[in-house]
Each structure stands twice: as structure tokens, then as C-alpha cells.
Computed example of a mutant assay.
Amino acid sequence: MPDILVLNGPNLNLLGKREPEIYGSETLADVEAACRALNLGDLTFRQSNHEGQLVDWIQEARGTRDAIVINPGAYSHTSIAILDALNAFEGRVVEVHISNIHKREAFRHHSYVSARANAVIAGLGTEGYAAALRWLAR
């Protein structure tokens, strides 16, 4: 079973409360419970609104985790620091977006994280996390 770090960026702590017409009604706790129920690996879930904390967690995953599933939120479009940290990570990386970022505002169409990701899942709602885990388990 793979050892997977699941990271969530800014505002994902408000999942289920913030813009449910875009992000749905499930909370981050609901997402975690659904992912754990799949029993597809040793999962560690973390969320931070702080870019440096996400970078620290990515660096800590080096040599200890097989993969990272990351929903970087708005940092997708702005953070070269997260990209650099992911580039130093040896395992697989799956980028997840709950909404289809390509159908939203133009500034959301580019993701720095995508340059490192082995796979990108966008627009599947919170099911994107489960899809990422199923892909990594194969």
C-alpha cells in the first residue's frame, strides 16, 4: 500500500461552506472520510492557508512518502515555491481541483503545479481525490 500525503491549500478548510455552487456541500472532513474508506494506502491529510507550511510538508515528504495528492487552491496559479518543492520530491504527484479551472476566470487557467504533476484532475468535484488515489494505487 502506498504512503500518500494529501495536501490542501488555502480556503479548503471552508469546503462545504464557501461557494457551494462551485465546490459542493461536502466538507474537507467528508472528503478525508471518503478517501480513507477506499483503503488504498496509508494516507495523511493536511490543510494550510500558508504557502510556507505547504512547502515544509512537501519537503518533509521527500524520502518518506510514495506520492502526494495536492489541491493547492489559489497557490496553483501563483506559487513557484510550491512548484520548486514538488520538483525536489522523488515520488508521484497528482494535482486535484474540485472545479474545472479551465471553465473559470482566465487567471485560473494556468497552474504552476501542473508542470510537475504526473496527473491533473479537474472538475470531478470531490470525487477527484478518490480518482487520484485509485490511480496511485495501480
Score class of each variant (00 low, 15 high):
100 N>M: 02
47 Q>P: 09
90 E>P: 13
114 S>Q: 05
102 H>Y: 15
128 G>H: 00
68 I>G: 00
24 G>S: 06
54 L>E: 06
107 F>S: 07
102 H>L: 12
37 A>S: 14
90 E>K: 12
32 E>K: 03
55 V>R: 00
13 N>K: 05
35 C>R: 00
81 A>Q: 07
61 A>Q: 03
15 L>Q: 08
74 A>I: 01
133 L>N: 05
89 F>I: 11
128 G>L: 01
39 N>K: 15
68 I>N: 02
24 G>A: 10
14 L>P: 03
78 T>H: 01
25 S>G: 00
119 A>D: 02
6 V>Y: 02
138 R>H: 15
48 S>E: 13
62 R>M: 15
43 L>E: 06
4 I>Q: 06
97 H>N: 11
127 E>L: 11
117 A>K: 11
60 E>Y: 14
8 N>M: 12
134 R>S: 09
71 N>V: 14
72 P>Y: 03
6 V>F: 05
15 L>S: 09
104 R>Q: 12
45 F>N: 02
74 A>Y: 02
3 D>M: 10
108 R>I: 14
85 A>W: 01
95 E>N: 07
133 L>P: 01
134 R>Y: 04
118 N>G: 15
103 K>M: 04
65 R>C: 15
95 E>F: 07
9 G>W: 08
130 A>C: 14
86 L>A: 11
67 A>K: 01
57 W>S: 05
23 Y>S: 07
137 A>E: 10
67 A>E: 01
31 V>D: 04
65 R>V: 08
6 V>L: 12
84 D>M: 09
130 A>G: 13
36 R>G: 04
112 Y>D: 00
61 A>W: 09
8 N>R: 09
135 W>A: 15
7 L>M: 07
13 N>I: 11
84 D>C: 07
93 V>S: 07
2 P>W: 02
57 W>G: 03
63 G>K: 09
51 E>F: 15
110 H>V: 13
1 M>L: 10
126 T>N: 13
63 G>E: 13
74 A>C: 05
114 S>Y: 07
90 E>T: 12
3 D>F: 15
85 A>Y: 02
106 A>Q: 09
38 L>Q: 15
38 L>I: 05
69 V>L: 14
6 V>P: 06
58 I>S: 00
127 E>N: 10
78 T>D: 05
71 N>K: 08
111 S>F: 13
66 D>V: 05
88 A>G: 12
135 W>F: 14
83 L>Y: 14
13 N>D: 15
3 D>Y: 13
94 V>N: 07
61 A>M: 07
